[in-house]
Nucleic acid binder design. Structure first.
Lengths: 229, 229
DNA sequence: GCCCCATAATAGTATTACTATCTTGTGACT
DNA sequence: AGTCACAAGATAGTAATACTATTATGGGGC
């Protein structure tokens, strides 16, 4: 099942392509686990190297710094979600149905059958939820954007915006609706777990059903479509 | 005009109340300016002290670390927005009208007549937009939440959620709608400036009219109310 | 005139965020 | 079989960060 999936990322995200070597894959694998455990602020290349039984200097040969590594993980995640959306909506022509599938793909990204052994998609999803926004809340955002480091996310948002326009060609804020669905999904999962008074949904274990229902509700209200049973 | 405004904040946010001393006020004032200039990651107490012609050790007597200082600034900002909303909606009984005022207060928070000399509200608004979400995206979020460090924001969100319920008592997601309005406001101002493909609105200089219009559109769609001219 | 206490001045530590250099081991090519 | 290339390991070193501790100074109140 892992065959055929290729996640292609901007080459400027890394110094040496981590997908091409064993050490590279180990860096991806363990950085996901370690960031999830101790948080991005406390995460350092030294700790990562120790955990992997490698050295700091070796990690630095793959990524310029931990910010670039985060950017890499975030890009990887969105590229993966885009891939999932593509295969799930491939044969769907009804855009309303398509949007519904997009929402559930997004919310349940972590539950998909893992496709690549060195990436724990479920843990990566948690990282995106907790740390994802730090990838673009930086002083370097404009330079990095110019280098195309956010292309994956922007492409995905625009893909969804196109579906919105297919549903309602005159809708005035297709991209804002699309990006808001993505941001809301992450935010409200996070709120439900850590700041429950900021939301109305609940999550238990890793069941995000209520989040999905809420996003469907919001989307259908925005686009004036019937909520299907 | 500065008379009578008192911003009261959780005492656990600081070690010594910065509002009570000259040095404290200088810390608030210059930290706002410096974080805006160099970004939160590059910001250090040493640089702040140098800028203020004080010492690192003195700053540490007021705030445990830079994260607590950010939390303080964020709380200050939301408390201030809550205050503005209160005075602007004081005599309004129609909840639809109230919500509209809330949206414009939120979007134009930075344009309000400055009330406290040591806080540049316009610059502070920029910080909230660019760095605000880092205040709660931390491993310590649960502990800090338990200590009440996010109360200001949660209270504000719930105040707006109550207005939503006044408009539509059966609305299933009042808090999510409220928090989403706040998050969207900040996000889309940021997107418009740095990642324009993630939104449909534009901002020029500090004119956020399009953001206001969009939030009104979203809110009225969600609540099924007429968009007023 | 003395006490209190905030601030300044200074120093010191562990960790972070790197950069540099040198060695070793493997695989590929001749 | 020999050497070449090159990735990774080992080691060291530097400047900055994130603090903590100690002592000195100076002004306001009693």
């Amino acid at each position: 099942m892992a065959i055929g999936i290729q996640i292609t990322l901007n080459e400027r995200l890394f110094l040496r392509d981590p997908q091409r070597t064993e050490l590279g894959k180990k860096i991806i694998k363990h950085s996901i686990l370690l960031i999830d455990e101790i948080g991005f602020e406390a995460f350092t290349f030294k700790k990562l190297a120790k955990r992997m039984s490698s050295t700091e200097a070796s990690v630095y040969r793959y990524f310029e710094n931990k910010h670039m590594l985060l950017l890499y993980l975030v890009s990887w995640f969105w590229e993966w979600v885009a891939y999932l959306i593509d295969i799930h909506t491939m044969n769907i022509s009804n855009p309303v149905h398509k949007l519904k599938i997009i929402i559930s793909t997004l919310v349940f990204a972590s539950k998909e059958n893992p496709s690549i052994e060195y990436v724990n998609e479920s843990v990566l999803h948690r990282i995106i939820i907790a740390e994802g926004s730090k990838a673009y809340h930086t002083k370097a955002v404009d330079d990095e954007n110019q280098e195309g480091l956010f292309l994956n996310y922007k492409t995905l948002v625009n893909k969804v915006a196109q579906v919105v326009l297919d549903i309602q060609p005159e809708f005035p804020y297709p991209r804002a609706l699309a990006s808001n669905l993505f941001e809301m999904s992450n935010n409200h999962i996070y709120f439900a777990i850590h700041l429950p008074r900021l939301t109305d949904v609940h999550v238990q274990d890793d069941s995000y059903d209520e989040v999905e229902k809420m996003l469907e509700f919001f989307a259908s209200k925005m686009l004036g479509i019937q909520t299907s049973k």
